[in-house]
Design a protein around this nucleic acid. Structure first.
Length: 772
RNA sequence: GCGCGGUUAGCUCAGUUGGUAGAGCAACCCGUUUACACCGGGAAGGUCGUAGGUUCAAGUCCUACACCGCGCACCA
């Protein structure tokens, strides 16, 4: 038989990978519904004659541009798991999608428009702006999908979802209404994290703290005020309504309860009450805290406890809203200087010291967070839910991990998780941006306009309607207006494991739950994602799934680390050290990139990747190529004996193998059997970094360097080359799917069927049985 | 301040339940022999951060400390 001519040249991933991916897509096997019925030899337990399912929801990448190496790692890890399970006979669903990433996407497009056209979103208007963002999102989406395909992802494109499409919007509105009806979602005037740059609120988790040099000023409000206070933000002091001291602080006992009027604090009149509060650290500064209820989280809470007034003195543009000409309308940074100057002039400033301070900035825009009181929508995480045995949302997030219904790899992250829940406050879910799920709440126009003859009905008018669109009041002539705001992007991401599976059901069609994807594939088996979104996303999926379905969203959380460059730096645009997965695939092949990302990358730990490492695995792909050439060249005469059918090739191994080590072939088969067992065990325990390295070691340094070399002088060893090699390709396939599939197509058993015929009859390696 | 992780060969990192320390890259010597120079053979290289402890046995378990990184809180 003539050797496949391709094998005579070095392996060329560039001209192979796209062709192979097309072959896979056309086979339909990415879709679990198209997988063949279970094989009698399959290891997992059979359910109703069907393959058991194995499901992963792909963490939807943000449609903010292109994928980076972190995404490549994610895709690779998940594809490895899915391919492994599929080969084991599971009905594997890997559902892909993208995330609209509200703030991130909008601010990106805003920046671009500002740069190119010098226009703001307000210049364009809501409709036009949304049109532009959607267009950008669509382009990003297309890029991302092609990148995922290049990596070799065997995900089910027929079920692809977007966090902002119609179905997901229905899910969002449905759950919003449910939570509102249960009293878990409320609208309240509370202090929030305001991003003056992005002109929106953000959640606690979206704040990034940066250490900066700052100054701490110690002073008195006026000459006759009895207590000195310290602050890094003198400009907020015009909003002070109290000075808080520790209840046990002897220095200030005599002042507690008294009130002072300061006629002129830089042109503003202050009414200061001295209150006692345990929050105050008597050892910090002067031990007295100037309370600015409207512009500090802790002060807001102190004001709660002492019923203090909360005047707002800073607006959404981080400008001062009170005072005379000297202050009114000034930026906070300028106002700070003005007040410090005034303090100096008045001889009130006692101390000025340089300190380092953590300053809160907005994750997406970099704007300095300004705490402000605002009317916003919140999710109450501490309210007891009747339908859930009086548990709170915090409980629902915590319990599955405590009971180990959900496991985390690596396990030490569960401590971080619990710690986060302990400190969790109500989640602010409304955002003052346009791109996202608009809050499904409609407000009645302020005044009722009676319909002649039906004046009595006005009593029935509702102030707000939640969850379903309403334009006109049925009882009077007033209209309903939808809330202008949109929802935090993580609200819709939180529904991801089930909004992608047809939830909520279309009751109109009377679709029984039993036939639904939700019943088949939920809870999902594994969530694979980066540790940096443990709180943002993992916690919120648990919250939403437990609340909406009363079940866990996934059984296992596998956390990967950050992919860094060769020197351990984070990859970023400003450093120019980013590696584009597409370039890697182009230069070295996606298989090589995958191996380089996986080998030595333990779960939860950051990894470093360099072109050298990737190059090494390109060489490995070529090695595999050449091994195939040698094996095929040297097994012509015995092919007929061994290849009764590819699936039976493994027969000589296992229990049938005599426990003798006298002859080399038997010893080698034994060793190989052990390697397979080891690999399987590593896969079962999610030790992909070890499995991949072991397979690499075995193939190169055992099979090629030793067994092949010996076979050159020993005809008996030649007989085992092909059987071992066939199973090597199988266990390597999840890691290097392209080159193994390509070689598979050249093996004699499948060459015979690959000439013509229905593609579905072809025996693709991707659905071959994992050896045992 | 509280918590988490790391510290292993020149570099980058693995090391599963304690049982003779591993890989890749780099460096050194040799080599073109039934595939592959994107190769093969060989040798070299570590008191596993420090100090104690448990154990027949510790890179692995316990305690303390040091340095690096991260998270959370404080940030008046």
């Amino acid at each position: 038989m003539a050797l496949n001519e391709k094998l005579l040249k070095p392996y060329d991933p560039k001209n192979t990978e796209s062709r192979i991916y097309k072959l896979w897509e056309e086979s339909g096997f990415f879709n679990p519904d198209n997988l063949p019925p279970p094989r009698p030899s399959d290891t997992p337990p059979q359910a109703r004659g069907e393959r058991p399912t194995f499901t992963i929801m792909m963490p939807p990448p943000n449609v903010t541009g292109v994928l980076h190496m972190g995404h490549a790692l994610m895709v690779t890890l998940e594809d490895i798991m899915i391919r492994y399970k599929r080969m084991q006979g599971f009905k594997t669903l890997w559902l892909p999608g993208t995330d609209h990433a509200a703030i991130a996407t909008q601010s990106k497009v805003e920046k671009e428009i500002q740069k190119k056209e010098g226009k703001s979103r307000h210049d364009l208007g809501r409709e036009e702006m949304l049109k532009r963002i959607n267009q950008f999102a669509q382009e990003s989406h297309n890029t991302i999908v092609s990148q995922i395909k290049v990596m070799g992802a065997s995900c089910d494109w027929s079920r692809e979802a977007f966090t902002l499409d119609e179905k997901r919007n229905l899910a969002v509105n449905t759950i919003f209404k449910k939570m509102y009806d249960d009293g878990l979602i409320y609208r309240g005037n509370r202090i929030v994290n305001w991003d003056p740059k992005g002109q929106t609120t953000i959640s606690d988790d979206e704040i990034v703290y940066e250490e900066r040099a700052s100054k701490m000023y110690t002073f008195k409000y006026s000459k006759d005020f009895p207590i000195s206070i310290s602050t890094t933000r003198p400009e907020t002091k015009i909003g002070d309504t109290a000075v808080a001291v520790h209840p046990d602080d002897k220095r200030y006992q005599k002042h507690i309860g008294k009130s002072y009027v300061i006629k002129d604090f830089c042109g503003v009149e202050l009414n200061i009450k001295i209150v006692a509060d345990k929050e105050v650290d008597p050892l910090f500064g002067t031990g007295a805290l100037g309370v600015t209820p409207a512009h500090s989280m802790t002060d807001w809470e102190i004001a709660d406890r002492h019923a203090l007034p909360r005047p707002q003195v800073i607006n959404e543009y981080a400008k001062i809203t009170v005072g005379g000409e000297n202050l009114l309308g000034k930026k906070v940074t300028d106002a700070r200087e003005i007040i410090v100057e005034w303090l100096k002039k008045e001889n009130l400033l006692e101390k000025e010291e340089d300190i380092k301070q953590n300053i809160g900035t907005a994750e997406r825009t970099g704007g300095i967070i300004e705490p402000l009181p605002k009317l916003q929508w919140f999710i109450n995480v501490n309210k007891h839910i009747k339908e859930r045995e009086n548990k709170t949302l915090k409980d629902l997030m915590r319990e599955p991990f405590e009971k180990e219904e959900i496991k985390i790899i690596p396990n030490y992250f569960s401590k971080t998780y619990f710690h986060w829940i302990e400190n969790l406050r109500d989640w602010c879910i409304s955002r003052q941006i346009w791109y996202g799920h608009r809050i499904p709440v409609w407000y009645h126009e302020p005044k009722c306009v009676p319909i002649p003859g039906r004046e009595d009905e006005i009593e029935k008018c509702k102030e707000i309607v939640v969850g379903q669109e309403i334009k006109k009041c049925p009882h009077c002539d007033a209209q309903f207006m939808q809330d202008e705001d949109t929802l935090d992007t993580w609200f819709s991401s939180g529904l991801w494991t089930f909004s992608t599976l047809g939830w909520p059901f279309d009751h109109a069609q009377d679709k029984p739950k039993k036939e639904s994807d939700l019943e088949k594939f939920h809870p999902t088996d594994m969530l694979e994602t980066g540790y940096e979104i443990l709180f943002f996303w993992v916690a919120r999926m648990v919250l939403m799934s437990e609340y909406a379905l009363g079940e866990i969203p996934f059984k296992l959380v596998y956390l990967h680390g950050t992919v860094r460059d060769g020197q351990g730096r984070k990859m970023s645009k400003s450093l120019g050290n980013g590696i584009d997965p597409l370039d890697i695939a182009d230069k070295y092949g996606a298989d090589a990139g995958r191996m380089a990302l996986i080998v030595g990358t333990a779960p939860g730990t950051d990894s470093k990747i360099s072109e050298d490492k990737i190059k090494g695995y390109k060489n490995f792909a070529n090695k595999i190529w050449n091994i195939t050439r040698f094996v095929l060249d040297n097994t012509n005469e015995i092919r007929e004996d061994v290849l009764g059918g590819v699936s039976q090739v493994g027969a000589p191994r296992g229990s049938a193998v005599p426990a003798s080590t006298d002859s080399d072939p038997i010893k080698y088969l034994h060793e190989f059997h052990e390697t397979i067992k080891d690999t399987t065990s590593d896969m079962e325990n999610y030790r992909f970094h070890i499995a991949s390295e072991k397979i690499y070691q075995y193939i190169w340094h055992k099979f090629a360097d030793e067994i092949i070399e010996k076979s050159k002088k020993n005809g008996e060893i030649k007989k085992i080359l092909l059987p071992i090699w066939i199973d090597c390709l199988k266990i390597l396939h999840p890691f290097m799917p392209f080159v193994t599939e390509e070689i598979w197509s050249m093996l004699p058993a499948s060459t015979s069927t690959s000439l013509g015929g229905d593609i579905k009859d072809k025996n693709l390696l991707m659905i071959e049985k994992w050896p045992d």
